[in-house]
């Protein structure tokens, strides 16, 4: 276990950069993809990027270790719930509109 830990980077910045990259990819996906399912997946990606950042902080700062784990678990739970509701909505709209493409969804305009 410790050997595994030794193999990984000892730099916090590396994790944060990774987290930032993941978040940027998620944001790009959310803005650029037209498919509602893909957008939901992008949201998951962003949430996980945030989770990664939280865990990294927890790992490098002893005072945050327990709290970080708890926060990460809560984020995972929230992400799961959000995914459920999001999928449900998407399916409901899909049944109405017969399309998964979000640029056809303009009912909010009026």
């Amino acid at each position: 276990m410790l050997a595994f830990l030794n193999g990984i980077s000892q730099s916090l910045d590396a994790y944060l950069v990774l987290s930032g990259l993941l978040f940027a990819i998620g944001t790009f996906g959310f803005l650029a993809r037209r498919n509602a399912i893909s957008m939901l997946m992008s949201i998951e990606l962003m949430l996980n990027a945030v989770n990664l950042a939280i865990i990294s902080f927890g790992a490098f700062s002893t005072s945050l270790r327990e709290s970080a784990s708890v926060i990460a678990l809560i984020v995972i739970a929230a992400a799961a719930a959000e995914a459920t509701i999001g999928l449900a909505i998407v399916i409901a709209i899909f049944r109405n509109k017969k399309t998964p493409l979000v640029d056809e969804y303009d009912a909010m305009r009026d």
Binding site: F30, L31, R34, M39, V102, Y105, M108, D110
Partner: peptide, 14 residues
């Protein structure tokens, strides 16, 4: 500017 499209709003947020 109220297009009703989620991605436009999201772009604004971003």
């Amino acid at each position: 500017i109220q297009t009703g499209r989620v991605q436009n709003y999201a772009l604004g947020i971003a």
